[in-house]
Design a protein around this nucleic acid. Structure first.
Lengths: 220, 220
DNA sequence: TAGTGGTCTAGACCACTGC
DNA sequence: CAGTGGTCTAGACCACTAC
């Protein structure tokens, strides 16, 4: 054959899945193997191939599911927040506070971002404590940090990206995002200035799983 | 065991390779399997793991070799060219003209970039024909396109990145870079303005293999 | 030609998930 | 509990590379 069996199976499956909504169940390794009359390892190779193409996600004990990927847009100008992008693409974003504590003049905030209830990103922010009293409650009310600074504290926030890159994640991030050993993440550093009080409000580092997000950078 | 065998083998091998120069030969699947008393597929899984971590490169019929990865830096300010980065990291960059033809007012240029004689990137440029007469010879003399515009034509070139992203490559690029089906590439669009003649000189699209380069974006 | 990695089979046991 | 994907074995044939 011109092409290995597992790639033929993968391509055929990709064509069948191309218009399926995210979360759709894909047939199991055993079913796929039986249907194509191949060994289970060959069927597994096909599904692993689709996972590497970021088209499906595989979970031990559960199954294989169709994935959608969202563009994480960064730019020298204003760019949409990750949650806006996810919502625009038909997904459901959510963010949970993992840790929030004050040390001196700074509030340290850690949050986990979810896409359709799957862990997708981790954010670590340092905020000027005097500008954000009662942050936990304000976050719970407004959801995104940007919206909280904007509508909760009326700070007229202005985001500025400092750096973005692909890296092998630090141990804590890998653990938090339940990453396999060999996967990279998108890492970005973002500063937010308040046009209202004329000071920097916060500095955020964010790490995003590359199977949920695709990095797109634009310069004006 | 707390960890699968192939990951233990991979981690042990990674530790042994961490300070080896690029191009160093790694033991074969058969040797690795014999030395650890495991099946060849388990040894293969370990080496594939290291390949996914971008630490080695595997070639059928030849062997497994230590890889080095270079940062591809892009920014709103001036950033080093890929060849500078490679040279600074101890590698040897080279670029070959694949195709060069004139259509109307525009010169279409296609080049392949090599790192230590391995195909690593593909560039496609459109230049203002009147500004670069005898381009082929000038390129052969100066090497990099930027240097050619600068020292060959004295155009005082000024590079500006327009967009950078990670994508599944177009078919032609995948073929030119000999990519496996599932790998993404760094894609960027760069425009060069001539401060000397006050016009745009060229527009380049470049695609880089992610096993040779790591995308790093900085904003000033 | 000898050695490499790529693919494939037919089994097996396991950890984990969801009901 | 049944079903899922993760790992592992012991084989085999093949395409390709380097000498």
């Amino acid at each position: 054959m011109a092409q290995p069996t597992y790639l033929t199976v993968a391509d055929q499956l990709e064509a069948a899945l191309i218009n399926q909504p995210a979360g759709t169940r894909v047939e199991s390794e055993h079913e796929l193997a039986r249907r194509h009359g191949v060994n289970r390892l060959t069927a597994k190779a096909a599904l692993d191939e689709l996972e590497q193409r970021h088209l499906v996600r595989r979970r031990r004990g559960s199954g294989t599911y169709v994935m959608h990927r969202y563009d994480y847009m960064l730019g020298s100008g204003p760019s949409p927040s990750w949650s806006e992008t996810v919502r625009a693409g038909g997904g459901t974003p959510r963010a949970d506070v993992v840790d929030l504590r004050r040390r001196g003049d700074t509030v340290h905030l850690r949050r986990l971002g979810y896409v359709n209830d799957d862990k997708a990103l981790f954010k670590q922010s340092e905020l000027a404590a005097d500008l954000v009293p009662g942050l936990r409650e304000a976050l719970a009310e407004h959801g995104s940090l940007y919206d909280t600074l904007d509508r909760g504290y009326h700070l007229r926030p202005h985001r500025r990206v400092e750096r973005a890159e692909l890296i092998r994640p630090p141990a804590e991030v890998a653990e938090r995002l339940e990453l396999k050993r060999n996967t990279e993440v998108i890492a970005a550093v973002i500063r937010t200035h308040s046009d209202h009080v004329g000071r920097e409000v916060e500095r955020t580092r964010v790490w995003l799983r590359t199977d949920f997000f695709r990095l797109v950078v634009t310069f004006t």
